[in-house]
Design a protein around this nucleic acid. Structure first.
Length: 801
RNA sequence: GCCGCCGUGGCGGAACUGGCAGACGCCCGGGACUUAAAAUCCCGUUCUGGCAACAGAGUACCGGUUCGAUUCCGGUCGGCGGCACCA
């Protein structure tokens, strides 16, 4: 009988479905395991070769854990709000809901064809009103706790399409669709105060098991810095406050710079003599897109405020004040003290605008370049700081500033509050009513969900408002507080909203009274193992950690962190070694692979392709090796003989393989786990036959990787029940040890001979035996031994003269 | 520029804590089976020289530590990912 994978795979997928084999149990007395993969955005293109990699990896872990007796929750769902469906809707005038439904259907079929052990009874969809009811509920809690507020923010504005663009729609400073200019435009937006959680988001990284690179990028994104606020007086009479991480260099501050948006420009308008020039500069800066503003970073621009001078608090020197767009209004105080001797940006600016450059830390050459990396230097030209180290100077000046009432220590973060509004249709409506009398009024929780109404056109309005703004009968409503006429908020939430808490919903997906029942959350959370792409290590991870911490603060969840362990898979590239893309024509469609080789082969290959955490190019040739392996496993059923025991020839290898496969699965080394199974198969083939007991163990080990073929063989050989219901095999560590070992014999580190020795020998015994080796004996007779080194089980090395 | 990761055969990749470099797979070459082909099975396969036994070289490059370095340290070059005027 041939290995008929299409029939076999269909058969077992139907059985799993029908018997709900992989449904998580609601028995909270069992030990639990909650593995999670990032739920996909169901795009129109369907699955690509990258999707099955993480899904299969955690599927392997999930299947192993079930066999180890855990109650496993391995769920799947759809992150289905988002731009592509909306853009498709605009172009074809089809409701995004319809498009989304079609895409979800296709994705579900494709994923099911891979034989993944997801608990489909808990499938969720962020666009389902029963789901987004709770996204809206969380927003209301944030609002009620003062963490959601409205504020003017710059948005990307396409001058031709007249719409607000998401950052990913801006390509190289122009609109992705029409290629015309994108500029900054101020709009009032909902914001979430994630910055209030900045420190906790850093500190609690110590509590979780994340890869180093993920921890680093989270910290980098939050961007904590320790510095000081310093008050500079001015000839205009107002204090101009700056933030600096280098208060020790205060004596080197020879001028100041404020950002074009700084409020003092307006305040000082009557004192500034060149206001016209300043206004021109401000206008030019405002017109620049973010892209231009950073693109032209090389060349510094700016204008001096004539008629106003700053006063350096340490020496009362009058110093000029410039406006320049290299100073950002959104960071620190929007104003800086410039220390051109020790900051490269200030140095470049000083050179261009002919400002004095003063060295305050010795060791560099400030005429050639700013001396930035000056931690080892000594203070000079710095009055009472002279002679101190940088660290001591920092401490002393900070104390002095405080004494004088001219400054204080300050921690700053690069992290900004989260812009939470989108002027789009396909997202969760923000459940807020805007009342002229009462301001922003939260929708009553009993009125949730606030469902997305149907609209005529999915195109944002020409003023950049969401398409919802055109629906008068939806927008106009009564204020829940005063009963007067009011309007609904027409902005919707970003795609990040639904994905910031979805792991909680899986715990109890159909609960209509809460995110999930407290018992379910208490039992299942935190997620034990969360795998996702590196592209989500900053935003998604940070946003969901933030929401979780908030939910912790209001008592909805019991752990401050949502995920105990995070891992990241590498991307699968096209055969040509570059990222798969439609335009390059190098996209591999999993459907084709499933048809040609079967799901088990695809799963095996995706795991065998290389180090799980690294990118790897697809190879149409290599996958054939995985198919061959399964063909050979299939043919084993003819060689299986009676007997439950392991044969003496294979016993040790089997125990070693059980150990190796088990360990490798836990440490993400799926490729070497498969290699170990291949090695064992080669040994079995060399021997020519195997016992039923040996075959059973082999199938159990292979099952998480290739579930269909192993179930079929298990059934064919009448081993009883299903593989899925079996226990994960155990190994005996005594039997993993070899009785003899081939020992390498070296002379001064060079291999001269090898010999077999009893594995239990100690160093002295090994050295004694090695000296008897004819090859070694010959060499040693001519040269004197300087040193004897023995490593049990490995080698003996004689260092000679 | 900054942060992180990486550099091993023709290819994807192995190598625990410093101890036989190249596991496993692909490709390729040879053979068996076949009328033939495919499939399958067996043998070979880092490079150089040699019919061979064998000898020498070899983990991007230069240097260091060590009895011994793919592994640790310093430097150089190259690639990938992310961030980027954050004072």
């Amino acid at each position: 009988m041939k290995y008929d994978y299409p029939t076999i795979e269909k058969k077992w997928q139907d059985i799993w479905d029908e018997k709900q084999v992989f449904a998580a149990k609601n028995d909270y007395s069992l030990p639990k395991f909650y593995p999670l993969v990032e739920f996909p955005y169901p795009s129109g293109q369907g699955l690509h070769a990258g999707h099955p990699r993480p899904y299969t990896a955690l599927d392997i872990v999930a299947r192993k854990r079930r066999m180890e007796g855990f109650n496993v929750l391995y769920p799947m769902g759809w992150d289905a709000f988002g731009l592509p469906a909306e853009n498709y809707a605009i172009q074809n005038n089809v409701h995004p809901k319809i498009v989304t439904e079609q895409n979800v259907k296709r994705f579900r079929e494709q994923i099911k064809s891979l034989g993944l052990s997801f608990d489909w009874s808990r499938e969720i969809n962020t666009t389902d009103p029963a789901y987004y009811k709770w996204s809206q509920w969380i927003f209301l809690q944030l609002f009620k706790n003062g963490l959601a507020y409205k504020s003017k923010m710059a948005v990307n504005w396409c001058t031709s399409c007249k719409v607000v663009l998401a950052n990913e729609e801006v390509v190289g400073g122009s609109c992705e669709r029409c290629h015309s200019e994108v500029v900054r435009k101020e709009k009032v937006q909902w914001m979430l105060a994630i910055t209030k959680y900045a420190q906790r988001l850093i500190d609690d990284l110590d509590e979780v098991d994340y890869p180093e690179r993920v921890v680093a990028s989270q910290k980098h994104w939050i961007g904590r810095s320790q510095g000081a606020l310093v008050d500079f007086n001015s000839t205009a009479g107002d204090l101009l406050q700056v933030y600096t991480t280098r208060p020790d260099t205060l004596f080197g501050a020879t001028y100041m710079v404020i950002s074009p948006e700084h409020p003092y420009i307006e305040k000082w308008a009557d004192k500034i003599q060149n206001m016209d020039e300043i206004k021109v500069y401000q206008a030019a800066a405002a017109k620049k897109s973010d892209f231009e503003r950073t693109e032209v970073a090389k060349e510094k621009t700016g204008v001096q405020l004539k008629g106003v001078m700053g006063i350096n608090p340490v020496n009362n020197a009058e110093i000029p004040v410039f406006v320049a767009d290299y100073v950002l209004v959104s960071y620190g105080t929007g104003a800086i003290m410039a220390v051109p001797g020790h900051d490269q940006r200030d140095w470049e600016f000083a050179k261009k605008f002919d400002q004095p450059i003063v060295e305050v830390v010795s060791g560099g050459d400030v005429d050639a370049a700013a001396f930035e990396d000056c931690d080892t230097g000594v203070m000079v030209n710095s009055g009472f700081l002279n002679g101190l180290s940088v660290d001591d100077a920092k401490a002393k000046i900070t104390g002095w500033l405080k004494e004088q009432g001219k400054g204080e220590p300050k921690v700053n973060y690069k992290l900004r509050d989260w812009v939470f509004s989108r002027q789009r249709y396909w997202g969760e409506p923000i459940p807020i009513i805007i009342c002229d009398k009462c301001g922003f009024v939260p929708l009553d929780e009993k009125d949730l969900p606030l469902t997305l109404p149907d609209v005529e056109s999915y195109r944002p309005t020409g003023e950049g408002d969401s398409p919802l703004a055109g629906l008068d009968e939806w927008v106009n409503c009564t204020c829940p507080k005063c009963g007067g006429a009011a309007k609904r908020e027409t902005d919707t939430m970003p795609q990040w909203a639904g994905s910031s808490w979805y792991f909680l919903r899986y715990c109890d997906p159909f609960n209509d009274n809460a995110i999930a029942s407290p018992e379910a959350i208490k039992y299942w959370m935190p997620v034990d193992w969360y795998n996702g792409g590196m592209e989500h290590t900053t935003l998604h991870l940070l946003y969901s950690r933030f929401w979780h911490k908030f939910l912790y603060d209001i008592g909805v969840v019991h752990t401050p962190e949502p995920y105990s362990r995070r891992t990241s898979h590498g991307m699968i590239l096209g055969e040509d070694g570059v990222k798969m893309s439609k335009s390059r024509g190098n996209v591999i469609n999993p459907d084709d692979i499933v048809n040609e080789y079967g799901a088990d082969t695809l799963r095996l290959y995706e795991m065998f392709i290389g180090d799980f955490e690294k990118t790897a190019p697809w190879s149409s040739n290599s996958i054939r090796g995985c198919k061959r392996f399964l063909d050979r496993v299939w043919n084993l059923r003819e060689s299986a003989q009676t007997g439950e025991a392991y044969s003496p020839e294979l016993e040790s290898s089997i125990h070693k393989t059980i150990k190796k496969v088990g360990e490798d699965i836990e440490t993400l080394k799926f490729n070497t786990a498969i290699a170990a199974l291949m090695t064992l198969l080669n040994e079995i083939a060399d021997k020519g036959s195997l016992t039923r007991g040996e075959f059973k163990t082999f199938l159990l080990l292979l099952n998480p990787f290739a579930p269909h073929i192993t179930e079929e063989l298990w059934e064919t050989l009448s081993f009883g029940g299903m593989v899925t219901e079996q226990k994960w095999p155990a190994f005996d560590s005594e039997k993993c040890k070899d009785s003899t070992a081939e020992i390498v014999l070296q002379i001064s580190g060079k291999i001269k001979a090898r010999m077999n020795m009893d594995a239990g020998l100690d160093k002295e015994q090994m050295i004694a035996l090695a000296k008897e080796n004819p090859e070694i004996k010959g060499i040693l007779s001519e040269r004197g031994i300087v040193k004897e080194i023995a490593v049990p089980g490995k080698l003996v090395n004689f260092v000679v003269r």
